[in-house]
Design a protein around this nucleic acid. Sequence first.
DNA 1: ATATCTGTTATATATGTAATATAACAAACA
DNA 2: TGTTTGTTATATTACATATATAACAGATAT
Lengths: 133, 133
Amino acid sequence: MFIELDLQSETPIYAQLVDQIVEGIASGALKPGDPLPSIRNLSEDLGINLHTVNKAYNLLKQEGFLQVHRKKGVIVQPDGMPGVTEEFEEKLRQQLRSLAAAAAVRGMSEEAFAQESKSVYRDMIMNRGGEQR
Amino acid sequence: MFIELDLQSETPIYAQLVDQIVEGIASGALKPGDPLPSIRNLSEDLGINLHTVNKAYNLLKQEGFLQVHRKKGVIVQPDGMPGVTEEFEEKLRQQLRSLAAAAAVRGMSEEAFAQESKSVYRDMIMNRGGEQR
DNA sequence: ATATCTGTTATATATGTAATATAACAAACA
DNA sequence: TGTTTGTTATATTACATATATAACAGATAT
């Protein structure tokens, strides 16, 4: 796993972990069934506390992106990722609204904003095999 | 001004204020030079503390979206909004990356994501006169 | 069986942010 | 001369973040 933390950032450490793991799954670097480091291992590798990693793993488990077994440890959800729920759509729209407003006020056009969204999505997916969806 | 606060939300009150004012400017509901309610008036209207409104106004002033005068009170930036700086682009990309990853993992396609971005932007601008940019 | 590693849970503590409550000050205005 | 403006200062409450230990029970390997 390639996790880089910015301890000076205003975004909490646990949130950075969540983001980067989700991005790892989206990019294909993490595939369904893949094991993740144990809480203690990862926390030690990153030089942070056990509970910070635990919080991130639990959030991802609650969202359905991870499974946590006594046996297998922590693995990427092998039984299909959660889909586009109405709840997620609503959250997505709300966040996009905030970004779109800030962009529009600064003079960024609708096309530029949509294009930026598109290329960010594409850059994330790029090096993924053709096996998904 | 049409400000609606969700006191149960996990997004801070001051951030909700910032968001909605920026959206007001983006949508054209607030035009350059338009006055905003005084700190005390708005805080009383919304039933929140003076300092919470002050914090929001100050952030917007620092970003260049508002001007604060002893004379005129608080007004929407009349001398041209800040443009698309490199700093803003970077922040925008980072946030879009997080959203795009969550969308991709859930199976939302690149086109659907870009389309969502586009329509959210459009819905925000809709009822704006043709006077901008 | 014994030691070890897993996630899980419980406490406690330090730090920072968010939000509130008062209070006061100086500039501008009617 | 009051009144309203933004501004600043202080104090307090509540909550989130992150850390430090400690212990427990299930699972695994020696």
